[in-house]
Amino acid sequence: MTPDLIYGAAGLAVFGIGLWGAIALQDRMRRLLGLKLCSVGAGFVLIVGAWREPPAAPDPMPHALVITGIVVMLSATAAALALIRRLHDLEDADDRP
């Protein structure tokens, strides 16, 4: 088994776990964490594209893509967290008599 195959399969597996979490779970935070896992999995798959047989230098392009992807996901997570928190506050206020 070559490293790229291991990484690729791991990436798809992580994406799958995240996908299951984002779709099947009820809890808002857990669903968001599922999406985070998906982004890690997709990042794995991209990074595999950089791998070359050891003497050759790795392809730098996927690293740039993954870093961009991380930044994008960071902002998306922040937005989702802000929404979850606001919703939580509103629902708390409703519960209070």
Binding site: F15, L19, C38, A42, G43, V45, A80
Partner: peptide, 23 residues
């Protein structure tokens, strides 16, 4: 919030496809 989940998931599926194509 439901829109966020759907939208991020859609974009991440797209990203996974992009990764597979780059491979």
């Amino acid at each position: 919030l439901d829109y966020v989940y759907a939208s991020i998931l859609g974009a991440l599926l797209f990203l996974l496809g992009v990764g597979l194509i780059y491979l």
